[in-house]
Amino acid sequence: MSEEQPKPPSSPPASAPKTQPPVSVARRHFLFTWLGFAWTGFAAATLAALSTCLRFMFPNVLFEPNPIFNAGKPDDYDIGKVDLRWKEKYAVWLVREPEGMYALSTVCTHLGCTPSWMESEQKFKCPCHGSGFYASGINFEGPAPRPLERYAIRLGEDGNIIVDKSRKFQQEKGEWNQPDSFLYL
């Protein structure tokens, strides 16, 4: 292979090359040449793309509702029912039993989807992987490894229910015996 090197292209005519004077482009005319358009466009596009970095100058704050909220009077809730009214805003189910109430987190303990309460079957059923929970929050089917979490719940001075989402109680740690995990009425 190495012996047969490609022949160099035929050399240009031997006559001395004439040096042409460089074409001078006045600065104010540069913008109106095609090359000028191209560079201007390129610079503008790059700047526009980089301008999105300005977004990083501002803090990334998620405005979430206050984790402590007033859930109204205990009489607003039907005994034996799972109440869905705070699900959308606070991600909480309030369950009213004859003895009292508790607040369940709507986050599935498997991978964090939101299960749906199925009234006719009396269970929470997760649409993602089929985990099922009783109204008490105890997991009984599917892959969820532990029960739903409960939030702190107590009665305020004015008789309203106060749910505190910043404190949670996990059954597998034996925390459902703690006073604020269940509101006796």
């Binding site: 939101t114 993602c128 992987h129």
Partner: peptide, 28 residues
Amino acid sequence: ANPTISPNPSKAPWYFLGLQEMLVYFDP
């Protein structure tokens, strides 16, 4: 997306459905 509403059924992109099926049987 609304984090409090999971579509029913919630399905992963098709190439991850094998993983999602595995999740039914194993810890996440």
